[in-house]
Amino acid sequence: MNPVFDKTGSLHKTLAYEILSGFYPAGSKLPSERDLSEKYRISRNTVRLTLEELEAAGAIRRRPRSGAVVTADAPAILRAAPAAQAELSAALILPPDQISNPVVQAIFTVFCKYCSEKVRISVVFIDQLASEDFRSLRADMAILFAVPEAAVRRRLAQRIGRLVLLNATAGDCDYIAPDNRLAGRLIAEHLLECGHRSIGGVTFDDRDPGSDFRQRLDGCAEVFDAAGAALHLTRISALKFSDARFRRKLVEPMVKAGHSALIGGCDAIAAELCAAVFAAGKRVPADVSIAGFDDQFYTQFMLPALTTVKYPAEAIGIHLAAVTDELLAGRDGHIRKLVPPILVKRASILNLPHRTEGEEE
């Protein structure tokens, strides 16, 4: 059961759900203000206000130096809290090939966990939008994943009240997206720390300046340019990259050119780069270091385990649930938020020997 709480905000939603699910049963202590602040990356003041509101509702009891304790009446109080709006319809709109994307699954698992039971969720594929059945599509909110085309967004905006883009940024709608430019900077800074100065990058050809692929490699380029290092970027079509012979022909000149590291625009590209390096008779990371983006589930099991940047799917799902809370409460719910990603250091990047100034590489 999804709890409905009269105060909005992701921390409210999280604590209410955990109390109702029995994770924090009656009589148990909640984490300290500091621990909650660090866990959810929010300010101590926000935590304090949330706890004050829970206490005012009778869901917790606070004592100096003893912390917050869940009351016996907390489950009944949280279940009985009214919502300002009876129902909200939300349509998830995405290309058909994205339905199996682990990132999409992770975001919506968290979203469904924390959103109100009064949110009605439907899934609509982009291809269906042109059909007769879906031309009359109406929803209070459209959640877009991998829908970069501005023309599609404009058509949707004519019949849907609120558009929220999840995996990229755009000037014409709200978004909750990973800070992809920061993700690129994190990878680039780590490579520089490990002594890499000549790097190759491979990503899918994407002309949208707000796309995740574009911003990740732009972030890398900013750091390398500032450090006087070289990033040699290759943009390719997804169709060409699916050809193993093409991948090998792509990687071989990069290795021969002396690139000590290769960056894939996502983990899938990075994994294929690893395979192509091995097929070329080279080793990762002894001959070529590899890095990716997203921290897909398989990256920790690769040989070697892939250095990557974790996609903040859980945080995005929680923020998305908070937007629906705002709309249910009758507020505008507008949001334009970049969620910071986390660098995951593993074995696929080699720490090169330190070179003194002027020494040849």
Score class of each variant (00 low, 15 high):
V152D: 14
I316P: 02
I269M: 01
G201L: 12
G292L: 09
A257V: 10
V309Q: 00
C173A: 14
I318H: 14
R355E: 06
N2K: 11
V103Y: 12
S43M: 14
L54N: 00
R34H: 08
S28L: 14
S260L: 09
L129G: 00
G281H: 11
L165T: 00
S28E: 02
M141F: 00
R216F: 13
A170E: 14
D294F: 05
L239D: 13
G228E: 04
I99H: 04
K240F: 15
M302G: 00
P82K: 11
S211N: 00
A315S: 13
R41E: 14
Y298I: 09
A83M: 01
T307V: 05
L262H: 07
V124P: 00
A146T: 11
P312V: 01
L262A: 03
E52D: 04
L51S: 11
C112I: 08
G184Q: 05
L36P: 02
P178V: 03
L273S: 09
A230R: 14
V70E: 04
L78F: 03
L217C: 11
A81P: 06
A177S: 15
L182Y: 15
G258K: 04
V110M: 09
M302K: 01
R61H: 02
C274R: 10
A286N: 05
V309G: 04
D174I: 05
H232C: 15
A275C: 07
L51T: 06
P64A: 13
L191T: 01
S136K: 14
L49S: 06
E18A: 13
P3C: 14
E193T: 08
V147P: 03
R48S: 10
A130G: 12
T109F: 09
L129T: 03
Y175V: 00
F5D: 02
E272I: 06
R355I: 13
A321H: 10
A168H: 01
L186H: 02
T203D: 01
P64T: 12
N180E: 07
S37T: 07
A183Y: 04
G200N: 01
L262F: 10
A26W: 05
F23M: 11
P148F: 15
A229F: 03
L217K: 08
S211L: 05
K29W: 01
Y298C: 04
L338P: 02
S211I: 08
G184I: 11
G264L: 07
A16W: 09
I143N: 00
R138Q: 13
S10C: 04
G9H: 02
Q158G: 09
A57F: 10
G358P: 01
A229N: 09
T71H: 02
G258C: 04
D6M: 08
P102W: 09
E149M: 10
K249W: 02
L36S: 09
L54H: 07
N45L: 10
N101T: 05
E357N: 05
F297I: 10
E314R: 11
A279P: 01
G201P: 03
V70C: 06
R62W: 07
D6W: 08
G228M: 12
D295Y: 06
K310L: 10
E357Q: 07
V288H: 11
L303A: 11
M254S: 13
P64L: 08
R181W: 14
P304A: 13
G58I: 15
T307E: 02
